[in-house]
Amino acid sequence: MSASLQTRTAAPLLQVDHLTMRFGGLVAINDLSFEARAGDITALIGPNGAGKTTVFNCITGFYKPTEGMITLTHPDGSSYLLERLPDFRINWRAKVARTFQNIRLFQGMTVLENLLVAQHNPLMIASGMTFLGVLGTKGYRESSRKSIEKAEYWLEKTGLVERADDAAGDLPYGAQRRLEIARAMCTDPVLLCLDEPAAGLNPRESLELNTLLRSIRKDHGTAILLIEHDMSVVMEISDHVVVLDYGTKIADGTPEEVRNDPRVIAAYLGVEDEEVEEVEAEVEVVAEQVEAEHKA
């Protein structure tokens, strides 16, 4: 409890206030408010169709919310109203990067090229909006070299350096997921939004993902907003969990608080669906594991 109090006093990096998103008559998000603090891993969970991806799309500018305010405050104090920025500025100015639930890589480009495209804006400036680049000035060559070094750093971090010159579409599924994270990190974000990064990963890959996310937070100070169905990932690494059901927030707190919240259990149990039961079982197993670890 005291630990959570301490983190709560840290400055909120992302503040979502009374966010509502309607599609015609469908209310996908209903008056949602939550905070994500700098340096935290915040998980956004909920049953299928709860509106999690829609929240991401509002934060990253792909949807304009019907109502509400999304404020991002950088560590240096500058703040941005995300609902008013066009999508590409949200990445470039406000420094929010994201991945997609159904992977969106540049499949016909190589792994390295994917990471270079992510550094488009700084490289564009270095190339003097292309004019200096055509001349091949020293400054541009220097920053071009640096961009490759940066890409190499992230390739090493995600274990993809061997595949740097292969087409992104040729990578196995798990590697594509990691590449998408590496690509997002190449934009130097302060907030990284991951939409189900562990979907389709095997247990070993899932574990590697945990390590990667932890290191992103620790070594780069990047806060992470995470949508995930895999409870082993959520309970392991998140500092703070927000639970959505039918677009409404039903719980908000530390993993332990959320796990024991009767409304969360009801939301997952309430739907008669095998998948949900599986999730429920997983939650319990992981909870036991975590408890056992704590005792040890």
Partner: peptide, 22 residues
Amino acid sequence: LPVGRAWEALREDEIACRSLGI
């Protein structure tokens, strides 16, 4: 150059481009 790479990235996936600040 970055502009040419952005053209090709645009052909590959426009939404991903926007998410990368292009």
